[in-house]
């Protein structure tokens, strides 16, 4: 039974990862900007599925709501407002393609070499449940982090000794300050975007 669940999870991961990778590559290959936006939509949805698979339910839901629902609408509106004939599909020269492919393959080689050669301080998949509580929603923990309330008990490893969390001390206030900065930042961005994109009379039309 456990084996069956493992196979099910692995095939689910394979499906999500394949969706994400194939759609990301399709974003690069397609020349039509409308299609690139739609491929990006599927790539982001696949990533949301991977988030759910990794046990990050709130982040996955936020990804679907804000990224897929909000940012993609923005991008598609941007495409529709500027898509006039020649701008829908702008061809890239073949020389640029070869150069970009070379740079891309080299970059991927470097990143993959680093991923495989580094010894990550990983835990076993099962061990994680001891730290975060299996099947418990992450919403409460994230909310406490953002409100600056430190966790009740520090996570422990298998032997029972508390694991030191990066940058944690008794006077820890979690992510309260970054959270406030982001909220003010969003307000500034709203005003700035409205100011930049306000309707203006075109100079050419008046003169």
């Amino acid at each position: 039974m456990e084996r069956l669940q493992e196979i099910w999870l692995q095939s689910l991961f394979g499906f999500m990862a394949l969706t994400t990778v194939v759609c990301s590559i399709a974003v690069v290959v397609t020349q039509n900007v409308v299609r690139a936006a739609v491929w990006l939509l599927f790539a982001l949805s696949g990533t949301a599925g991977l988030f759910f698979l990794l046990g990050a339910d709130f982040v996955g839901a936020t990804q679907l709501l804000i990224y897929v629902g909000g940012t993609m609408i923005l991008v598609i509106f941007g495409v529709m407002l500027t898509a006039r004939g020649p701008f829908v599909s702008m061809k890239t020269q073949s020389g640029e393609w070869t150069l970009a492919a070379l740079v891309g393959v080299a970059l991927f080689g470097i990143v993959a070499a680093v991923v495989w050669s580094t010894k990550w301080p990983t835990m076993d998949w099962g061990d994680t449940s001891k730290i975060r509580g299996e099947n418990s929603p992450t919403t409460v923990q994230l909310g406490l982090e953002f409100l600056g309330i430190p966790p009740q008990e520090s996570p422990k490893d298998a032997a029972g000794t508390p694991l030191a969390r990066l940058g944690r001390d008794p006077a820890n206030i979690g992510y309260l300050l970054p959270f406030e900065i982001v909220s003010v930042h969003l307000l500034v961005v709203l005003i700035g975007a409205a100011y930049l994109a306000r309707a203006k009379r075109r100079k050419a039309a008046t003169s």
């Binding site: 709130f58 990804q63 909000g70 953002f146 969003l186 930049l196």
Partner: peptide
């Protein structure tokens, strides 16, 4: 998910979702 740093990674991922949304709004403007 895989390292003992716990929920911190997800908190950072939330910032990483909100900030690109703001960036996209400014870039499109």
């Amino acid at each position: 998910r895989y390292t003992p740093f716990g929920i911190d990674g997800q908190a950072f991922a939330l910032f990483g979702i909100v900030l690109p949304a703001a960036e996209a709004a400014i870039a499109l403007a």
